[in-house]
């Protein structure tokens, strides 16, 4: 697998779209390319953020925050 092919596969990998047999080949290439591969995969995770930002923000109820903060404070005090 060339590095360009690895880059294409990496973008599929970070969204979990590789099939099992592709995953094995991907892992072999990942080991072969070493740090360069890891750096590229890390960069690809920015796609997650981008997809989330492409959505219109949704409103959540104020009660969620209150419950969350009560749980966090209770856990901290415990």
């Amino acid at each position: 697998m060339s590095f360009e092919q690895f880059q294409n596969q990496s973008r599929l990998y970070v969204i979990g779209a590789l099939d099992p047999e592709e995953q094995e080949e991907f892992e072999r290439a990942r080991a072969k390319f070493g740090k360069k591969a890891e750096d590229f995969i890390t960069e690809c995770y920015s796609l997650h953020e981008a997809f989330a930002l492409s959505l219109r923000p949704a409103k959540s109820s104020a009660a969620i925050k209150e419950r969350l903060m009560a749980m966090v404070r209770a856990r901290k005090e415990a």
Binding site: L55, P57, A58, K59, S60, L68, V72
Partner: peptide
Amino acid sequence: NGILKALILRVVHNEAEADDLLQEIFM
């Protein structure tokens, strides 16, 4: 919370489930 709720809602398509998951995720 608005960004994460939108993402969760996009996956589960249910307001109440999305709120529950949002709380779990921040925890």
